[in-house]
Design a protein around this nucleic acid. Sequence first.
DNA 1: TCTGGGGTCCTCCGCCTG
DNA 2: TCTGCAGGCGGAGGACCC
Length: 351
Amino acid sequence: MRIVAHLDLDAFFAAVEELERPELARLPLVVGGDPRGRGVVATANYEARRYGIRSAMSCAEALRRCPDAVFLRPRHRTYSEYSRAVWAAVREVVPTVERTGLDEGYLDVGEVAEDFGRARVVAEAVQAAVRGATSLSCALGVASCKVVAKVASDRRKPGGITVVPAGREASFLAPFQVRLLPGVGPRAEARLAGAGIGLIGQLAALTDAELTRLLPGKVGRLLRERARGVDPRPLELTAKSVSIGHEETFERDVSDRERLHEELRRMAGRVAEHLVSSGQVARTVTTKLRYPDFAIRSRSTTLPAGCADGARIGEVACALLDRALADRPGALRLVGVSVSKLETHEQLALA
DNA sequence: TCTGGGGTCCTCCGCCTG
DNA sequence: TCTGCAGGCGGAGGACCC
């Protein structure tokens, strides 16, 4: 019997900060950007959420909602260390794991539990292991496939366990808002709402013709399958990254070409360091621009051979920036550089 | 509200080639 | 040699996720 669990650490960044600084534990706490700048909320603890503060909200808005909140900048290195400890503890209980982020992932519970009743016991053992190793709490959803497990893990937060027995997938999902289905973002939600479709059960019941009209292409068919609780995706145990990039939003929009080039060269250097440390080279360089009206433009080019040289990547990125600004001149809110078509040194040696 | 930074995947279009 | 077509690929953009 295939049984999958989705594990989600509760308010992860904020929970780590509370562990590191226990005096913050009962205060509204926001981890994210500068509340006087252009930053957004990465994570808010449950105390801050009582004021309506949510992830992805601008920090300025979070400050307006709760002027007494404590604002901290994210410390990714510290979170990575806690994350490593969490997943080591999880693997002591369930050896086969797919990490999808620092704070979440899927577990192959079928390996250690032969039925859904026993799966709950395994989920409790995972929670206890995580708490014992790190003092962090997590929520788990257990089901026959990834999408149902993921929706289930969100049901009882913080610290809960939700088990959806086999055969109950579609009826479990049906009453939830479509936006809770992974893959349905603001655009798809708006299109569905325009046709009076608000619940996952209604999405699951759409005819082919209705689906083609509302959500054409592969995406629509995939979302309707998921709404029906059908999701054959296996656990991905060896995730390899496809691209590496770096981008930054300026405090104030920048139009000075020299300054933009300088920033791009600096970011290209960081990207190249990342490439070198992972033993990879890249063939495609992409420069991204965001204008004050939030319009995004990107220009990319593919090099004849793989490259991990920061100066070379910077040079190409600057030329791409110039090309994009020739098409649409103006000040920029953000620039970024990323590389893709990655190859490892082993692959190059084989080629 | 006024929107970061790191990504992935999908779609569309134009170009090239057989 | 020209035309039409299909498929592959690169480039650009959009939607989404954490």
